[in-house]
């Protein structure tokens, strides 16, 4: 599009805005909103993390302490524990979700009677609010009346009811079980969307060449699906690494620190200890941890996809 032309045929370049100027003007409100709701809080948290600031001790003021809080984090056993919990939770649940999600996606990709219905039914766990489903699993795992205990007991796997979410050994695994139940459908949904983009002819051609189903899966499905897998893994990993609501409702981070994820420790540092300086440093550390994971994914998986 050229510059606006007036009735007289002369351009009005001098008076009006150039196209790029207009663009900048139009984008300004969005930029301001983004700054106010995204960048400002992040920068404020970083700034706060460089201070000693505890609501319980207002008389200490808010002195600048440089990187002191970060130095403290590195030797904080509770932080290292939450890092371990978060990593274990993320790696275990996301890998199981990927495998199960893939299996379900492949299944749903085959034509069969009632596929639409099954597809919808599979999505139900994903549609539930996390807090509601966490409460539901808390009942399922209940040590006295839980159906999980009843089933295992009935089948003879256990000889007495186990308080799954109150036992240090089992609590994190119970939480992973609930998370897998809830988010496998999400994996399945993304992957089956990806599967539908693979042209049927490829399979037909390979079949003519005598490729087995297994060979087809590894040589056709996986390579073509790789970008989709990357996106699905990235989404799920980032979500799992920031896990809060599920654990908060199901176990409260307990027993002890057995299921205290980075987000829960950050929350406790802010709201129980009222330590806003240190809590902000923890929030920034969580942020960096999540950034690191994204970076690794994009480097490792992303690079291969481009080749």
């Amino acid at each position: 599009m050229g510059a606006p032309v007036t009735a007289g045929g002369k351009t009005r370049r001098g008076k009006g805005l150039s196209e790029s100027q207009l663009g900048r003007v139009l984008v300004t409100p969005a930029v301001i909103v983004m700054c106010a709701v995204v960048f400002f809080p992040i920068l404020a948290t970083v700034w706060l993390s460089l201070h000693k600031y505890n609501l319980k001790y207002p008389y200490l003021g808010q002195p600048f302490v440089g990187l002191d809080n970060y130095v403290k984090i590195l030797s904080d056993g509770r932080f290292l524990n939450s890092l371990k919990v978060t990593t274990l939770f993320t790696v275990s649940s996301v890998s199981v979700e990927l495998v199960l999600g893939m299996a379900i996606a492949l299944l749903l990709n085959r034509p069969f009677k009632g596929r639409g219905l099954v597809r919808t039914a599979v999505l139900v766990p994903w549609a539930l609010t996390t807090v509601v489903m966490a409460r539901m699993w808390a009942w399922i795992f209940n040590s006295e009346y839980g159906v999980f205990n009843a089933i295992l007991y009935g089948l003879g796997f256990i000889d007495q009811y186990i308080p799954w979410v109150a036992d240090t050994q089992f609590a994190l695994w119970a939480a992973m079980g609930a998370d897998i139940w809830k988010t496998t459908p999400f994996m399945a949904l993304l992957l089956s969307a990806g599967l539908q983009t693979i042209p049927r002819e490829l399979y037909e051609a390979s079949m003519v060449d005598g490729a087995s189903g297994w060979k087809q899966f590894w040589s056709i499905t996986i390579p073509i699906l790789k970008p989709t897998i990357l996106v699905a893994l990235l989404f799920r990993t980032l979500d799992a690494a920031r896990v809060f609501d599920l654990l908060f409702v199901l176990t409260g981070g307990g027993p002890g620190f057995a299921t205290e994820s980075l987000s829960i420790y950050t929350y406790r540092s802010l709201f129980v200890n009222l330590d806003f300086g240190y809590g902000s440093a923890l929030a920034v550390a969580t942020f960096l941890y999540v950034m690191l994971i994204s970076f690794i994914y994009i480097k490792v998986l992303g690079a291969r996809t481009e080749r």
Binding site: Y57, R268, V272, N273
Partner: peptide
């Protein structure tokens, strides 16, 4: 003391738990 809640969670509870276990 205002420090008590944190003392309880970070200093006292883990040690009692370790001895009980």
């Amino acid at each position: 003391t205002p420090a008590y809640p944190q003392m309880s969670v970070e200093a006292i509870q883990p040690q009692i738990a370790a001895v009980l276990a």
